[in-house]
Write a protein that binds this DNA or RNA. Structure first.
Lengths: 218, 218
DNA sequence: GTCTATAAACAGATAGAC
DNA sequence: GTCTATCTGTTTATAGAC
């Protein structure tokens, strides 16, 4: 017997994708335990039974949501360029492009709101979809940026200081998303707009330049 | 009729404080919805009814936990010094002391683990205790550090760029706590130790010096 | 103050009609 | 494939014994 969860093409489309969209939205907003299957089914304009049919169980749906948001985030922040940068300056430029894309994606697009919330939930609680997000998104992206940082700074890409510096670098961007309620309130901002995101990106890029400029002198 | 929640001194002590400790631990670990009152009562070696007696309801207990962790965190990261720093160099030194205390508190002490987890849960989900944490902890601490940053860099303390830079600065520390599962895994670290926390603090302080050193040249 | 028993609502999973 | 009805277990809150 062939169940839909085993078939690779997205054959039925309608109900299945509606469940994924509703799952991503609600899991991201209220967490895994905080979201009921009834709520998901209602938002997807279908019934509870269809979750078991398409994904086996609530946890199966959650896993599928995790794989889906990992894919969308990779799309959203862009794929790494094929060729390695030829000079430290070129590497620094690529770092700046990367951080701007990352910040704008995290904070500036209302379209990506659901997927980002989902990822943050998983990161913080180490939920059941943490594995797939780490393996397919965080690890490769961190490794890629360590390479750029290495070229830009002259330090070895697998050194502890480079790996930590890259986490600090990416962590700043992520923090502005995670703590945005506090940030918006303190800044007097009315919600997260692309303009606000651009201001954040500018500060981070300014800091990045200062950090990298003095790096070789150490 | 006088209920215990209205009396200010911690008169009964035993059961009430046991419930607070259990609540902070479990709410921090599994979130508000993910924690059942039965679980809390069991961990506090008491019964479900006592939660209603001492705190009115599950949400009442959660609020009380929020106030308690805010108090403990303020204790843990130290109170601001009474006198303003006399020179930019003195301000920079205080910033370095502050960030090291913050990082060590967040990442290095197993004792503070419960309260930090609780705060992170509230920050991310904007839970019912967010208000009290923001008002009593985040706002005053951010304001205090903006003052130091202003003295160290020469920029006005209420400028957008200073406020954002301070958030970026604090956000890095917090990120290493929130994303520690990912960080530990990528670094090959076996859990969060004071030694690892010290490495993180060193990187952040190095970055801080670079950022502040070039500040006046802009 | 402490504890037990119970009520009323809700959860996820599933069998089976269509 | 879709949907309903139902089973089983768990949730918080509460009434009342001690």
């Amino acid at each position: 017997m062939k169940t839909p969860e085993q078939t690779d093409p997205d054959a039925p489309r309608s109900t299945r994708t509606a469940l994924l969209a509703a799952g991503i939205h609600l899991f991201g907003k209220k967490g895994y335990i905080g979201t009921s299957t009834r709520e998901i089914a209602h938002r997807a304009n279908t019934n509870i039974g269809s979750i078991a049919y398409h994904f086996g169980s609530k946890e199966g749906l959650h896993q599928a949501c995790g794989a889906e948001i990992s894919r969308r985030i990779r799309e959203g922040i862009g794929t790494p360029e094929a060729s390695a940068p030829s000079s430290p300056e070129a590497a620094r430029t690529r770092l700046e492009t990367t951080i701007r894309a990352f910040v704008m994606f995290l904070n500036g697009s209302r379209h990506a709101d659901d997927v980002v919330s989902f990822m943050v939930q998983e990161l913080g609680t180490k939920g059941p979809a943490f594995e797939i997000i780490y393996e397919t998104l965080i690890e490769p992206k961190h490794r890629e940026i360590c390479q750029l940082w290495s070229t830009a700074s002259g330090q070895p890409a697998d050194s502890e200081s480079v790996k930590l510096a890259v986490f600090a670098f990416l962590g700043q961007s992520l923090y502005f998303r995670i703590g945005r309620e506090a940030v918006n309130r303190r800044m007097g901002w009315d919600g997260s707009t692309p303009e606000n995101a651009a201001m954040i990106a500018n500060i981070l890029i300014t800091n990045l330049r200062k950090i990298l400029n003095e790096e070789p002198n150490e």
